[in-house]
Design a protein around this nucleic acid. Structure first.
Lengths: 226, 226
DNA sequence: GCCGTAACGGTTGTATGCAATCTTGCTGCC
DNA sequence: GGCAGCAAGATTGCATACAACCGTTACGGC
């Protein structure tokens, strides 16, 4: 998964390991509350403890793990109320970003968003819902980046990862509506209409929240497929 | 090794270094855009490069520095619009936290907040405005923690640090009004009135924003690139 | 004189080793 | 039987050492 030293890529070990651990936390390979020993992680990803430790410091700042000196690093545990609050925070921040994105978006941003929208359209037509989750993440991330606020984009990314972790479930039911809403949002960006963009995103997030809540509780992995 | 930190504290080197670097960035000992070499930091804080590197990973996740592999670590540069957006984000998140704090606050939270309020009252009576900045930060941080949402508290802490960095300027003028507003907020928490708490904090932040803006972007160092 | 190129110094990235500390399981006592 | 205290093992924290890489500069060809 990591480690392609033979192929010559010897750089970026720390970042690669960080992404790998985050992935394994989000996908629940490591259970919440589980202790992560540096040595076992180092063995798992075929690196030494140093990049593992650095990756853990990043993940700790992001809230995926927490560590006590000399005691070790543990996968974070998220309560139900905390999970709810994550959705609440996203419901605040994404509309904020969308409002600014409508005012500041560049042609490049628009083009990227349209590309994602087009790809999603194809997947929808073909009934292949598998790749939609990734495109959905991309759309929201690009939207946040179009805001021109690096902090907003960073927050959206972090919250998105955490939400994907807690609510490890996709909502294929809503896919058609969801992407129709995405299209409207993009149109508001084209029109440079900040207020409409903000409200559309606010509604969009609100509906997604309701879907999440209906679909099931946090932590429990609902067996499903897209 | 010459670990002469404090009175023989041999643990927590990384966290100590992290806080020290953050402090030096916020207080502009290190200028925005400046390159930070690990060796010089290690020398400055009398540690080896390892804890320095780990501290830098944390600070990178927090957005105070950014680094490229093999190229080095640089103090971040914040544009004026980004600074504005920081205030906007705080204006979203703190009321959100206050609303929940009013519903979830414990007696311990109330007691801590009252303590801070009392201390500030004394300083105000004595005309000693020096320590107020710290108490102000404490009040807002405690308020965020009272929300019972770790993510909210973490965001408030991060945003607060960054705002203190960008707008490195205090506003003694507003001190009396500000603390009167703090007292009202605390009362709303006692009354367990979420809506009132949210609105009071929203107004409070809004007034602080105006004060910042009037004061000018004196603290904002326009990035000079080459 | 200009540009491509190769070597050098400086810096970052990773691995290893050892001391300090925590956790775990056991012992002995109540 | 349960719990405090302790020893052994396991794990973390930090320092040192070495390898990989980047930017710069001196050099030579054109």
């Amino acid at each position: 998964m990591v480690n392609e030293r033979g192929a010559g890529r010897r750089r970026d070990t720390t970042q690669t390991v960080c992404a790998a651990i985050r992935e394994d936390v989000v996908s629940r390979v490591f259970a919440p509350g589980e202790r992560l020993t540096e040595e076992s992680l180092a063995t798992r990803y075929r690196v030494s403890r140093v990049p593992v430790r650095e990756a853990l410091r990043t993940l700790e700042a992001e809230g995926f793990v927490h560590s006590r000196p000399y005691a070790g690093t543990f996968v974070a545990e998220i309560s139900e109320t905390e999970a709810e609050d994550l959705l609440g925070l996203r419901a605040l921040i994404e509309p904020f970003g969308a409002e600014r994105a409508a005012a500041r978006r560049s042609q490049l941003h628009l083009a990227r968003l349209e590309l994602v929208l087009a790809e999603a359209g194809e997947l929808l037509r073909d009934g292949r819902h598998a790749g939609l989750a990734r495109l959905n993440t991309s759309f929201h991330q690009l939207l946040a980046e179009a805001s021109g606020s690096p902090d907003t984009a960073a927050l959206v990314a972090q919250l998105g990862n955490k939400i994907a972790w807690v609510y490890s479930v996709e909502l294929p039911r809503r896919a058609n509506d969801s992407w129709r809403e995405h299209a409207e949002i993009l149109q508001a960006l084209r029109d440079q209409d900040p207020e409409r963009a903000r409200e559309l995103v606010a509604d969009h997030i609100r509906r997604a929240q309701q879907a999440y809540r209906l679909r099931g509780s946090k932590g429990v992995r609902t067996p499903q497929h897209g």
